[in-house]
Design a protein around this nucleic acid. Structure first.
Ligand SMILES: [Mn+2]
Ligand SMILES: [Mn+2]
Ligand SMILES: [Mn+2]
Ligand SMILES: [Mn+2]
Lengths: 218, 218
DNA sequence: ATAAAAGTTTAGATTAGTCTAAAAAATAAT
DNA sequence: ATTATTTTTTAGACTAATCTAAACTTTTAT
């Protein structure tokens, strides 16, 4: 069984390697976990000896199949708990991440399967992120970054890329939530900001920065 | 903020001091936490320096007001989680303790208040143990050990004293659950075993040992 | 009252996780 | 192709929690 700390390292390595194909670097892990490179070097040796990652000195790490399965089970727990907090306990979507960081480390397969059942086998968490199933499979739907969306095409918000409370609170304030209808009415060349109509309301400006962190689908 | 380990020691000391008035001894703590006396000595020094207990060398410890409040908040979390697992996730009463041992250490007052609300402010957990309220207050009802119950008096099971899975499974098998109607039809002098009618069924024998671990009320 | 037994504390060691500072390797710049 | 910079690893130290073995106190038995 992995310790709380080992689980956090493994999950972080999994997220850093998502999408990309290159090895994950020591400093990247250190930055993502707010720790020091020397500490990371020790830990990746340990995870490597457990065959959860492959480590080549000075070149970084790659997650193994076994490591990925384990990481996915932690991600599954994290996202199921976030869903529980929002759907059953009426948390706001900006309040759940920190608590889920703790809850994801509870060890009980019975608990997680019963929780999944209780929630009706959800496929996405409150931020639109996919929830891996019991076998670690993820249902990925095609989505596009709002920044790159076509002008005057009706779209629906399906996920956020940045889960920071301040960003989520801002989104709530302007009416952006998962499922919300959005329409880009104009793209400002100068700074990349967008004029967007949210839920058929009067168009308002959002920054390029914000538009890069909102995912939409048709 | 207390560590996972400090919380377990404090809770254990609280439970060992419940009822009794004498100081809690090093070996009692060691036994209850499956650790060694030397380890306990170190930890009680730490808890003492945090003013959660009062420690007199060679004579044991007493929990302080501050320590008791903290212990009660952990007990509250433990019992609310057990209630959640049984009432919402359909766990059996013999499956919840181990998981609650982990869940009780999640730090989030928002979480626990919302959970309490979600469960409808329950006053007892699945084993009939009282759930302290937000302020640490416990609603104690008068109850008697089944072993000492009057003959042929209708009573209702209100709690168990021993939460081991094997005992709880045995109780489930013979129909004893919280709220079940029971009637002691005869007390066997020889070994203290009781003949008991459970839910108006034919009387059956239960051991003195079992009868000492079942609490009933009128 | 003294000796034996039981219980508790101290001393010294170990493991997990962390850090800083120095050494080594890889990458970038002249 | 050397040199300078950046990144990574190693070395050594620290804290929390744990253990065993030895020393010390208290309690019990003679
Ligand atoms: Mn999250
Ligand atoms: Mn975590
Ligand atoms: Mn319990
Ligand atoms: Mn616990």
């Amino acid at each position: 069984m992995l310790s709380y700390t080992e689980e956090n390292y493994l999950k972080s390595i999994y997220h850093l390697s998502e999408g990309g194909t290159k090895a994950v670097l020591t400093n990247e892990i250190a930055a993502s976990l707010n720790t020091k490179a020397a500490t990371v070097t020790d830990m990746i040796k340990k995870l490597s000896s457990k065959e959860l990652i492959e480590y080549e000195k000075y070149y970084g790490v790659n997650i193994t199949k076994k490591g990925k399965q384990l990481a996915l089970s932690i991600v599954r727990k994290h996202r199921l708990w976030e869903t529980f907090l929002v759907q059953k306990l009426n948390f706001q979507w900006d309040q759940v991440h920190e608590v889920a960081e703790q809850l994801e480390h509870i060890h009980s397969s019975l608990l997680i399967e019963k929780l999944d059942e209780f929630l009706g086998h959800p496929t996405a968490d409150p931020h639109g992120h996919p929830i891996p199933d019991k076998n670690g499979r993820i249902k990925q739907e095609k989505q596009v970054v709002l920044k790159d969306a076509l002008i005057n095409k009706t779209l629906y918000v399906c996920a956020v890329r940045n889960g920071s409370p301040s960003f989520l609170q801002y989104l709530s304030k302007i009416g952006v939530q998962i499922g919300a209808k959005v329409l880009v009415t104009e793209r400002i060349e100068f700074d990349g900001s967008l004029e967007v109509s949210i839920k058929d309301n009067n168009p308002q400006l959002i920054s390029r920065e914000a538009a890069e962190n909102i995912l939409v689908k048709e």
